[in-house]
């Protein structure tokens, strides 16, 4: 699927992902107050920020598609010196 066509996720879908990931990592948000803007952090604000982050960041990153042959992932850095040997010899 074209990354630019990733469907908009609902709050419930995002919350399910967030809670599942946090549980998998052993991170517990329940110690925070539910909704208290005077607290340093509350669950409502953290979840709202996480949803904004997930709506803005992963899809935007995946929408940028460098040429995997000419701009190899940095897991294989030896190829970098070949890919950029000549000026302009790289592609996005």
């Amino acid at each position: 699927m074209d990354a630019s066509r990733i469907p908009e996720l609902t709050d419930d879908e995002l919350d399910a992902y967030i809670h599942g990931r946090l549980k998998m990592a052993g991170v517990d948000l329940s110690v925070l107050p539910e909704d208290d803007s005077s607290a340093p952090a509350d669950r409502k604000g953290i979840l709202a920020g996480a949803r904004r982050f997930l709506r803005s960041t992963p899809a935007a990153i995946l929408a940028f598609e460098p040429d995997v042959q000419r701009v190899p992932p940095t897991l294989y850095p030896a190829a970098r010196s070949v890919a950029v040997r000549k000026e302009g010899n790289h592609a996005g």
């Binding site: 992963p58 995946l62 701009v71 940095t74 970098r80």
Partner: peptide, 26 residues
Amino acid sequence: VSLSPWINGLLLPAPEYLRGQRAKLL
């Protein structure tokens, strides 16, 4: 007060992380 970015860092999948690092080198 700094919690939010630490939580968000937990949520970025590895392929997006690697794509981002590739883009950084580009």
